[in-house]
Design a protein around this nucleic acid. Structure first.
Length: 512
RNA sequence: GCUCCAGUGGAGUAGCGGCCAAACUCACGGCCCUCUCACGGCCGAGCCCCCGGUUCGAAUCCGGGCUGGAGCACCA
């Protein structure tokens, strides 16, 4: 009895037990650990805070995948906040804002609200002024290296005890653009002797003279650092649960100092480790990919060799498959390796049943396509469109005068091979001769079953894969499929049809 | 160097004092099914970092070590 069948029987015999079974199934799907102290909040509110300095790579998907899944589990609220407060070293890419939102949609999520930090400078300034009033911040003109030395020694710098008036004046001068880069910063007063040197009097605002690429923010010169900006925003937007990488572990500790000055409650925090992905030659780094795209080594962000979301999308991989694989990784703080095969497996499960089959002969360096005359058999082969769904019909592939096989499928001279959906043929050394045989020979005599295409009536194919491009020939039914449709090339793998040029179809390889 | 975090089969996750000679997903090997190397089914191999301690009992608690990671930026 199959699973479906079993379920139906159970529904007849014991409907209440079925309910139980199904609710258990649902729990199984929620593979993420419980968020801490959820019961203390009316609503779980989370944010993803991408830096829009380029389109997303695969690792970036973890943030929307996990946070979005929590949103679904707790019926929560999700903000997408672009932390674009460094116009220079992490210079925002104007296209990336929409590309990222698009990628979030591809993964199947939609933020409840979208904010850009670069729209909110006046809010940060006003909180900085409040912090100065609280005695929680001071302007500092120490050269970086000197401050670092004092800090490491646990010594306060001479500016730490400035009077509030002066600090206000100097901060306003920072905002007004009266200092040049490196001349003045605003520091949060933490604990200069804190045992963790990373937490001692960190910078909250600095001067950046390079204008922000967004027109709306181009006039600002005094920019907040992430720890200040995101701390303020998390509170102002009512975030209850912060979920982010271990690289920001100290961030929470820094931000607590600011929260303490303001008397705010710090949100719950969950940290996860870094994700590595196997199966790619190209490093999963925005800057590396950007270089390769700019230099032309990659055709673009959606080049199948790039470990990007755009690439997986073009290959026909469903966003949910990526989400499930990411969710399966959980939220542990150790670094994790994500196997691409896990994504492929999730994807295969989703598309196998609905994907039509077709034949494609690869013309590879390690064993190309061979063309052979064929005589004595029927005019055409009729393999099913899907092996498990007869109702979807059969393909009609005329053989004409001959067929093409992949060289590695060619039998020894005098031996037989079964052309899938057509019949048995014998290789004479010159060509193929039809042999009237039953399918049993494939089992009893170990006659191999292979795929094939007509030598003449075929369609040239360019198959782009993560390991490089492969050319080949497919049955001409391929022309009927529109861009974006998925196919399984039997014995080769799943592909997404990308488009038809004159005489040639381009497909992107997903996985086998 | 200082600070913090983590260590369960090949990869990931669960278990968090007895039900654990450890479960699940992916990968791997074999067999079966099959006109695909897909899908499906069955079987298999393989794991609690080390050393001490607490306890009747530890993968689970404590201490030390080892290993790995993160931070110590006027990056995010």
């Amino acid at each position: 009895m199959g699973q479906e069948e079993r379920r139906e029987r159970l529904a007849e015999l014991a409907p209440d037990q079925l309910d139980e079974l199904e609710s258990e199934d649902e729990e199984d799907d929620q593979r993420l650990p419980e968020l801490p102290n959820v019961e203390e909040y009316d609503q779980v509110r989370m944010r993803m805070a991408p830096n829009p300095n380029g389109p997303w790579h695969l690792g970036s998907a973890r943030m929307p995948a996990v946070i979005g899944t929590y949103k679904d589990i707790y019926d929560g609220w999700m903000l997408c906040r672009f932390d674009d407060t460094d116009p220079e070293t992490k210079r925002p890419d104007l296209d990336a804002y929409d590309q990222i939102l698009d990628a979030v949609g591809y993964l199947g999520f939609e933020p409840d609200e979208v904010l850009r930090a670069s729209d909110r400078l006046d809010i940060y300034y006003s909180h900085a002024r409040d912090l100065i009033d609280e005695g929680g911040a001071y302007t500092c003109s120490c050269p970086q290296a000197e401050f670092s030395e004092m800090k490491n020694a646990g010594e306060a710098c001479p500016h730490r005890d400035k009077d509030t008036e002066t600090v206000h004046e100097e901060f306003e001068a920072m905002v007004a653009g009266e200092y040049s880069e490196g001349e003045m910063v605003l520091r949060v007063k933490t604990d200069i002797k804190h045992k963790n040197p990373a937490l001692r009097d960190f910078v909250a605002f600095r001067i950046i003279e390079t204008p922000h690429p967004r027109e709306e923010a181009a006039e600002y010169r005094c920019w907040p650092m992430l720890d200040f900006q995101s701390g303020i925003d998390d509170h102002l937007t009512g975030v209850t649960h912060i979920i982010r990488g271990i690289d920001l572990q100290d961030s929470a500790k820094k931000q607590r100092f600011v929260y303490d000055y303001f008397g705010w409650e710090y949100p719950e925090v969950v940290h996860w480790g870094h994700v590595n992905v196997d199966g790619y030659d190209v490093a999963m780094s925005t800057s590396t990919i950007k270089e390769l795209v700019d230099s032309g080594e990659l055709d673009g962000w959606d080049d199948p060799r790039a470990p990007t979301l755009a690439s997986l999308r073009r290959r026909g991989i469903r966003g949910e498959a990526i989400v499930d694989a990411m969710v399966e990784l959980g939220t542990s703080t150790s670094n994790v390796d994500l196997a691409m095969s896990a994504i492929y497996s999730e994807n295969r499960e989703r598309i196998d049943d609905e994907t039509d089959r077709a034949f494609m002969i690869r013309d590879r360096d390690d064993g190309g396509a061979v063309e052979l005359p064929l005589s004595g058999g029927p005019d055409a082969g009729h393999p099913p469109i899907h092996p498990e769904h007869d109702d979807r019909g059969r393909r009609d592939i005329p053989v004409g005068a001959g067929v093409m096989l992949e060289a590695t499928d060619l039998p020894q001279e005098g031996e037989r091979v079964w052309l899938k959906g057509y019949g048995c043929v014998r290789y004479t050394g010159e060509g193929l001769e039809y042999v009237d045989a039953d399918i049993d020979v494939t089992r009893e005599d170990d006659v191999a079953i292979v795929h094939w295409v007509p030598a003449e009536d075929n369609r040239e194919v360019l198959m782009r894969t993560p390991d490089g491009d492969v050319t080949g020939y497919a049955e001409s039914t391929l022309e009927a499929y529109e861009a974006d449709e998925l196919l399984q090339f039997e014995r080769v793998g799943f592909v997404r049809v990308d488009g038809h040029d004159d005489g040639r179809t381009t497909v992107y390889f997903a996985h086998n």
